[in-house]
């Protein structure tokens, strides 16, 4: 989650963020609603997604890496669901499990592409333009800002810890580890409070303006 992260530069990158969001949501809904056993339909959905991968010029190395990590998380839960699935005697365990994994992979691919061809803050912004309530959009935008603050504070605390303990790792010391979490929260909160005050001093009125020419309303 870098603020300066580069996005894939395919022809899809320039499309309005609202269209990207609606098309991806529609695709995921279609995939999830596809009934068990409609293999030709799944094949069509898969080829559509592959076409989008090529058009969007997503990094295949990152895609495969993230996809494998994603599968390892979903596989066990999908198996537990497949084992107790009511249609198991008719269709068979393997195809139920496979279908759940396929649906999840297609949904993953669509949302992964979405997050690769859009700057993250513009994506959150687009949700607001699609009608997400304003307090939630404000929270999202400030959260996005705070994640970097949190990471900076964590780096500072880790550096301070390393320099004081001469690199010795004693994570068994639970009481100090415990204090660390709470202090990390407090420090990043206090810093984001100052950032917020600085934003107010520069005339922030609750609307984040972006260069794509649209304000969050």
């Amino acid at each position: 989650m870098r603020s300066d992260r580069s996005i894939a530069s395919g022809p899809l990158a320039g499309v309005d963020v609202r269209i990207k969001l609606l098309v991806s949501f529609g695709y995921v809904l279609t995939v999830v609603a596809t009934p068990l056993g409609w293999w030709w339909f799944f094949a069509a959905e898969t080829s559509l997604l592959l076409l989008v991968f090529v058009l969007a010029r997503v990094s295949f190395r990152e895609l495969v890496g993230r996809w494998l990590g994603f599968l390892s998380l979903v596989a066990l839960m999908a198996l537990a669901v497949a084992v107790s699935h009511p249609l198991r005697p008719e269709i068979g365990l393997a195809s139920i499990w496979g279908t759940i994994l396929l649906k999840n992979s297609l949904a993953f691919g669509a949302l992964f592409t979405l997050s690769q061809i859009t700057q993250h803050h513009i994506l959150l912004h687009g949700l607001g333009r699609l009608g997400l309530p304003k307090p939630l959009v404000a929270t999202l935008q400030f959260m996005y800002r705070s994640v970097f603050i949190l990471r900076d504070e964590f780096d500072r605390m880790a550096k301070a810890r390393r320099s004081r303990s001469f690199g010795k790792k004693s994570w068994g010391d639970w009481s100090s580890l415990a204090g660390l979490l709470g202090r990390l929260f407090l420090r990043s909160y206090e810093r984001s409070e100052r950032v917020h005050a600085a934003m107010l001093a520069r005339g922030w009125d609750g609307t984040v303006r972006t260069l794509d020419g649209a304000d969050s309303r």
Partner: peptide
Amino acid sequence: ALMGSTAAF
């Protein structure tokens, strides 16, 4: 500010 940092945390 508090909501944003709580969410980030």
